[in-house]
Design a protein around this nucleic acid. Structure first.
Length: 414
RNA sequence: CGGGAGAUGUCAGAGCGGUUGAAUGUGCCAGUCUUGAAAACUGGUGAGGGUAAUUCCUCCGGGGGUUCGAAUCCCCCUCUCCCGGCCA
């Protein structure tokens, strides 16, 4: 949730920023108008309510003293009529504002480059040189036909398209990677957490998936519950509606979870292979920090994810997302893209975002800053997406016969 | 899934129709004392919103109702605990 008071006071500035993120200026104009309306309606309602409270007090006093209450009752009844209609319009104004405000994305950070989509993202640096082969490297689905690590057909049979089954060393590799990632994160100070894979609607609103992106989520029938699309949801919302102590911050959390996404908008993209699945494993980092610390922690998280890739010997590059490619809740995002020799391109394997106070405002996560309560900053990032790491290992560590070597650092996990 | 009890501030726990946003204890913050700490004592301490401000409005699990007035009465929902059933 953006700060509406700030929007009202600095309309031009915020409008410019949000347009960079693809928000229609008419919606912003409407939002500002609704906000002003709400304040008006509220103040007249509150005035009438104060009036009523005062008369009610008097009413009690009169009864106690045995005075006649008939005249007062007439006045109080009349005001009650007025009150209920005012309350109704205040409620409507509030709902109108809220439903609009919940659909507005976060402000991009000042340093975020302009741009429409992923083509305008800015490469910051490359780490490790792309792997070279003295044969033509295969894509991971071809390799899985040879080594039997991924069974796509039976995944589809069990569930539907975009599900798969890992078998043998493929399954063991997944388990090894999860353990490796968690250990690496723990070494950097992240607390390991095991969370529910199903969360309720209010948590998904807290991190920004609801109400706007309901179509991307798997909902449990007849329940107010959803399969989580990322561990960012349960980890960040661990402190939903709480006021933390200053000395508890920063909070660094990591969890392994499966992630469930409908991929509603991506029909036809990456239909082949394990790049885009409805269910995938991921180890996530989440940080909850004081505003002044978030930038430093953000850098640390990027470095950590990059270090993990380096330890695995996977060539990758670090990319700064442009305004148009930023996610709904993010103010600043850096993606890590791993080199896939079979596809001959870099593909996203981690995305690290600082949402500043956007999620904290929605989820009401605050800390006691000496006297007053202040919104925390929340950050999240993958370290790393497990399925895509398996793909990357298969393609980068492949031999000409289709067998795949195991990276040195994983040997103790398998 | 069936039967019973309950949901109040960090926590524990009063209040059961009228200056109660809420006693008391505890926790936390500050101070006194102390070489320092502990103990003891003193003071402060829920959240959100509106106003330039005194002040005002909202919140006692969530939603609705009764009433001039509700934490307190009624209805629905959710959750927790106890008993029984089922079951990793």
């Amino acid at each position: 949730m953006i700060d509406l008071k700030y929007l009202q006071k600095n309309y031009e500035e915020t409008a410019t920023k949000l347009i960079k993120k693809g928000v229609d200026s008419e919606i912003l104009e409407a939002l500002k108008q609704r906000f002003i309306e709400l304040k008006e309606v509220n103040s007249t309602f509150e005035e009438a309510k104060a009036n009523q409270n005062q008369m009610s007090k008097l009413f009690g006093q009169y009864k106690k003293d045995g005075k006649d209450i008939a005249e007062l009752k007439v006045k109080v009844d009349a005001n009650k009529e007025l009150l209920s209609s005012l309350q109704e319009s205040a409620r409507e104004a509030n709902e109108a504002l809220n439903s609009l405000a919940l659909g507005i994305p976060n402000f991009p950070d000042d340093r975020v480059p302009d741009g429409e989509d992923e083509n305008d993202n800015v490469e910051l640096k490359k780490v490790l040189k792309p792997t070279t082969f003295n044969f033509i490297p295969k894509e991971h689905w071809e390799l899985s036909e040879i080594n039997g690590w991924i069974d796509f057909g039976r995944g589809v049979k069990l569930a539907k398209s975009r599900f798969s089954v890992l078998r043998g060393d493929g399954a063991r590799l997944e388990r090894a990677l999860i353990n490796f990632f968690l250990d690496e994160n723990r070494a950097k100070g992240f607390e390991e957490v095991a969370v529910p894979f199903i969360n309720n609607a209010s948590m998904l609103q807290g991190t920004g998936q609801l109400p706007k992106f309901e179509d991307d989520l798997f909902k449990i029938e007849d329940e107010n519950l959803y399969l989580i699309p990322t561990a960012e949801v349960p980890l960040t919302n661990l402190y939903n509606d709480e006021i933390l102590r200053e000395k508890e911050l920063p909070m660094l959390l990591t969890a392994y979870t499966p992630c469930f996404r409908k991929e509603a908008g991506s029909a036809g993209r990456d239909t082949r292979g394990m790049i885009r699945q409805h269910q995938f494993s991921k180890v996530e980092m989440v940080a909850i920090s004081k505003p002044d610390d978030s930038e430093r922690i953000f850098e640390m998280m990027v470095q950590n994810a990059s270090d993990i890739l380096t330890k695995l010997g996977l060539p990758h590059r670090i990319v700064e997302l442009c305004g148009g490619d930023l996610g709904f809740s993010a103010s600043h995002t850096i993606d890590l893209e791993v080199w896939l020799p079979g596809q001959n391109q870099y593909r996203e394997i981690s995305s690290i975002s600082n949402t500043k106070e956007f999620q904290a405002r929605r989820a009401k996560i605050r800390f006691k800053d000496s006297k007053k309560n202040t919104f925390v900053h929340t950050l999240n990032g993958s370290a790393l997406a497990v399925g895509r790491t398996i793909v990357a290992i298969m393609e980068n560590y492949q031999n000409e016969d289709g067998s795949v070597n195991i990276p040195e650092v994983l040997k103790r996990y398998m």
